[in-house]
Design a protein around this nucleic acid. Sequence first.
DNA 1: GCCGTTTTCGGCCCGACTGTTTTCAGTCG
Length: 583
Amino acid sequence: MLQLDKNEIAAILEEIGVLLELKGENRFRCLAYSKAARAISQLEESLADVIEEGHLRDIPNIGEVMADKITTLATTGQLPFYDDLKKGMSAGVINLLRIPALGPKKVKTLYEELGIDSLEKLKAACEAGAIADLKGFGKKTQDKILEGLAFLDQQSDRVRIDQGMAVADAVLARLKALPGVKRIEVCGSVRRRKETVKDIDLLISSDDPEPIMQAFVSLPMVNKVLGQGPTKSSVIVQGYDAHRRFFLQCDLRVVSDEQFPFALNYFTGSKEHNVAMRQRAIQHDLKLNEYELAGPSKTVKARSEKDIYEALGLQYVAPEMRESTGEIAAAEAKTLPTLVTYEDLHGVFHNHTNWSDGGATLEEMALAAKAMGWQYLGIADHSKSLTIANGLTPERVRAQQKEMDELNARLKGIHLFKGIECDILGDGSLDYDEDVLATFDYVVASVHSLFKQTEAEMTARIIKAIRHPRVTMLGHATGRLILRRDGYKVNLDAVLKAAAETGTMIEINANPHRLDLDWLHCKRAKSLGVKIVINPDAHAPEELGLTRYGIDVARRGWLEKGDVFNTLPLVQVKRSLAAGKPF
DNA sequence: GCCGTTTTCGGCCCGACTGTTTTCAGTCG
């Protein structure tokens, strides 16, 4: 059992990197900590196993020093080196880095010259005019810091992917209509479909950038202009989510149409993927930047990103896989997966109706699924213990199934599967007796209670449910709510191994608030041979469309059509479910 | 601090924009 989990250790390594930077340490040494932090947080296997088996140093960017420090942190929960670093630096200094325009150098100066170690002191110093006189600072910097301080209150760090995409689509729609726009794409983490995004990157190709830039900074959703140049501008845009306003930075780059594929590749990232691409270009005696791929002997022409990858001897890497988790090596070996697509799906299994806490009738949900082009829809309302969500008693289960039989007889082109989202009770047992469970086509087992159990308890509880012969799939594996609540403590690696053993599927919950199982664990599940099912957890007809966010996660997790249960057509799903555990 | 078909030292991706400068450092992505 580890004293700290991998995310806590990664956070400490990241902080060490920042602290060293504030001390004016060599920036590559600082960067090494940041790289190590990323490597640890992206670990697919269990960190405890890796440490125990002595494989830490096999991880790229983990050397002797890092391996030592990580082991110390994991086994003792402490690190003297880290504690010493913190002693020499007031804890609040790190907060100053949250202000735009303040980096490590300026923060160091502020701390050493004026003793500023908190946002409050920074504000006071600005208002007293003390900042403007510092060397390297000035009146404008001081004003900018004040603005940044005021803005910090209303701007959250990141937003969910659905919020980011909504804003990106709105901006894109307006820019697309402008004269002179040849090609336009959303880049960055939105294009890579990360579960949260910090900003929106837009790219346009045009021969006449000036009027496009002018139109961009004048868009109605633009709240503030951060910077404006001939090829690059940055603004703050506002969006609305559940009637709450949120703010997001949006950057636009305009390049020529010849440069577009290179710029698209560059601004899609990730940063680590870009570094790997550039290093690969150097190996080919070429230089890659956002404008070209060229060297002393040749210049590579590219119409699309695919041409760039091919010029470097690589298969095309889909944006979702560009996270530097082995995609370059796989692209070189020509072993990249053919990623599952939205069009591969024929239905989904975890959905609610007004029989429990959903908003629509069985028929409305069925017709909505049919309209989406699906062959089947699985209904899995809540089970009896979840009284707050109007969970079904055994009597109501029978009545609902009767209605489904009638609908299946009457509706053409869509089949309803009789499922249930069955609560996993505190001790890992299920919420119905065997005779009720036997009436369902399939069972989604989910945790909805006792989130505070220890990791050992929760893991044993979930594994017990997974081993139950009636459980077809595990619903929202950790119960996390993105940017709101961490998942319950559970050893997912052990859960995935149990799922592989028993042939139980794991759900990707496509609701953008959940996106659970996460993409890294999808990769792990695939390598263990666990089958995945993508479910929207829809509580209304329009929420069936959320399924696309689940496809994004699956693609980030390198999943192919064959890894995802609901790519099977109706006939095969019927046969599969009738046989019990399908895999 | 990490890394190696330039391998145990000496690199480490690269460019736009801003503000404070008077030629460039810092920040950002």
